[in-house]
Design a binder for these strands. Sequence first.
DNA 1: CGTATGGTTGACCCCGCTCAATTGGTGTGG
DNA 2: CCACACCAATTGAGCGGGGTCAACCATACG
Lengths: 252, 252
Amino acid sequence: MSPKTPHPSAGRSAVTADDGDELRFCSTCAFSSACLDQGYDKARLQELHILVEHTAPYREGEHIFREGDAFSAIAAVRAGTVKTYITDRNGRETVLGFFLPGELIGLNAISQDRYPCNAVALDTVALCRFSFPMMATLATRVPGIQQQLFRLLSEDIGKASLLTGDYSAEERLAAFLVTLSRRFGSRGFSATQLSLAMARTDIANYLRLAPETVSRVLRRMQDAGVIAVERRALDIRDLARLEDVARHVLRD
Amino acid sequence: MSPKTPHPSAGRSAVTADDGDELRFCSTCAFSSACLDQGYDKARLQELHILVEHTAPYREGEHIFREGDAFSAIAAVRAGTVKTYITDRNGRETVLGFFLPGELIGLNAISQDRYPCNAVALDTVALCRFSFPMMATLATRVPGIQQQLFRLLSEDIGKASLLTGDYSAEERLAAFLVTLSRRFGSRGFSATQLSLAMARTDIANYLRLAPETVSRVLRRMQDAGVIAVERRALDIRDLARLEDVARHVLRD
DNA sequence: CGTATGGTTGACCCCGCTCAATTGGTGTGG
DNA sequence: CCACACCAATTGAGCGGGGTCAACCATACG
């Protein structure tokens, strides 16, 4: 993740939550709640803010970091969608996750001081970059920051277990869509009109399915009137039904 | 996880690394390296040590915590083997992990302040219990502790993705055995003569296979001369071959 | 236009699940 | 000490969900 300076002529992504500036955090940032919730004074907010670096936009297909790169920073997605993945020697790809505005990438790199996976921009992506050593130092002085880091790390441990289970293609895809819907919704985007940044193949590699299966299941869901999908535009018509199918996976 | 006082007549498990006492940590403890590596003085080591509580042994089948219990502490396994799992409303069980001496349970509970899974002793288990709030407070004063916590949390994020991939039954079981072998080996136990604390069903629920499949694959491996297995005793005869099969999963 | 890339659809097959029966080890009570 | 029950583990038979392979279609781009 090479440092870059913001570029004024940056193209704006379809999926953006870029309302931060030099003095305020983006409203959806994973860290905004860390301080706001606990009523920290402005001086401390400023301390966190000062170590944030807004990167220039990454273009579609551009890599943010690659497996094995030295770890120095975590980053919050400010706009666009990031995919993290690894590839085996046969060239087969396993997608570890998709990251929407407000979500953090790089947390899994701390233990080895190297990124254990690749991260690529699926569309135009802007990031808030936090130097991890500086952040860790700050965390010793601001307990709220430390708490939030612990919380975020712990959260990510559980996330992976969503896909761990042994579920049918239909259940997995339903769970994927419901999760996506909730994440978009909680960040101020539409929870029913989803604009998918990732290809069918990416979804398949994430859910451990063949792309053909993803295609077939989506079609079945459309025929059942649960969704309407055309290319990357997906409309959730019957969220309740979808949540019902996903219930086993999501456990709620 | 209710507090208990050590019981002098505690039975000793077959798998034990219980060499800690009031002044020294167990040599295999996940935290021992945190301080020793960085050459902290005795006063600080003592600070960490003081908040450790050695629990009375748990008997086979006894639960350490259950899903939904309020979170207050993480724990290092001192002796025995712990299984963490969740069950869906159909009663089907998903095993999240097995924890050997020196490994930590409860890290995934931080984000929600509740344990998101059950933890049960597979044989006679002894724990070192660390109050998490106290530990977090200490971590603000001792950067090494904070670092180690970050490291351990980050490590666990990656662990889950081992089982994430879409691999054959043979590859998964091979990877499971190799991992087990390495973990035993790195903690001073035999890396080839494994004493499995878990039932075939547990292995199956961990690897997302049917117990029958686990049985069949083990038999095939035995017929091929790679392992010798009888009940819970498993002997790795050809580790190289096993590692070769597991290579795709373990990526090394 | 022609070409490339991503997505869809169909035909076929195989791995691993399900169901069922059997074995064997362990604990319990007579 | 044996008889019985119980449960984990094994083995066999059959089947189905999803992968593979291949052809076709549609949109984007030169």
